[in-house]
Write a protein that binds this DNA or RNA. Structure first.
Lengths: 110, 110
DNA sequence: TTGCTATATAGCAATATTAGAATGCAGTGG
DNA sequence: CCACTGCATTCTAATATTGCTATATAGCAA
C-alpha cells in the first residue's frame, strides 16, 4: 500500500506539508484547505490525492463534502524507518566520546 | 541549508534509502556502494550528490577516494518535524478513548 | 427539473528527475 | 611524464510532476 517511496515523495512538497499542518487542527474540506493558499482548488485536490495515496490522510464522505483527516499509520511507518538510524547517531556520539577521551589523554598523558 | 523539501525528496528514492542503509555499517566509497546495485557508477554518484545536498550524508576526501558517511543532523531534523504529529495521533487515541467511553455509556446508561 | 455548491478530472505547457554512455579530471605509482 | 584508478560531469532521451483553465459529476434545495 503506502510505500516509503510515496510517503517521502508526498512529504517533499511544502504545500503538502502545510496541508498536513492544517489538518493537525482537525478535519478540513478541500475548500477550507484552499483558502490560505494562493493556489487553485484543483491543484489542492491533487495534492490531497498524493497525500491520500501515500496513506498520510484519509477522506470521509459527508453528503457533498469530503473532510480529510490525518492518518497516523503512515507517520509511524516513518518512525519505524527512522528507528534504524537512531543507532547510527548514538554510535556517532559514542565515537565522539572516544575521540574526546583520546584528546584528553594527549593533553594529560601518563 | 538542507531543507525538508530536499531531505524528503532524497528519501523518496529506494536506491538512495538503500545507500543510507549501506552507510549504517560505516563509511563507503562510490565504487563500494555501487557493487550491489545494478546501476552505473555515475548514477550512484548522482544519488550521492542528492543525499549530500539534502544533508543526509557527507564526504571526506582521502587522496583519490571520497568516503561517504551518514550525517545525523538531517535525521534529527525529520524527528523534529515528526514531533508535531506525534501529538496528533496521541490525540487520536484519546479521541478514540472518548468514543469508546460514549459507546460504553450507550450500552450501559445511567 | 433547475440551479447551486463541493469536489474531481482532463488537457496542456513548463519544468524536473532519472538513467546510461561518453568524457573529463585529479591523485598515485612507476 | 605516463598510465591507471576513483570519481564527477555532461549529454541526451524517457518519464514524471506540477500548475492552470475548463469541464464534469454528485448531492442538495427550491
Amino acid at each position: 500500500m503506502h510505500s516509503l517511496d510515496s510517503v517521502f515523495h508526498a512529504l517533499s512538497d511544502p504545500t503538502r506539508r502545510a496541508i498536513l499542518a492544517r489538518l493537525v487542527d482537525g478535519e478540513a474540506t478541500v475548500d477550507q484547505i484552499t483558502v490560505p493558499f494562493t493556489m487553485s482548488q484543483p491543484s489542492i485536490s491533487r495534492h490531497l490525492k498524493v497525500l491520500e495515496q501515500a496513506g498520510l490522510i484519509s477522506t470521509r464522505i459527508d453528503g457533498t463534502s469530503r473532510p480529510r483527516r490525518i492518518e497516523p499509520a503512515a507517520f509511524t511507518a516513518i518512525e519505524d524507518w527512522l528507528e534504524r538510524y537512531r543507532t547510527v547517531w548514538q554510535a556517532n556520539y559514542a565515537r565522539l566520546d572516544s575521540v574526546l577521551d583520546d584528546l584528553k589523554q594527549e593533553d594529560d598523558p601518563l
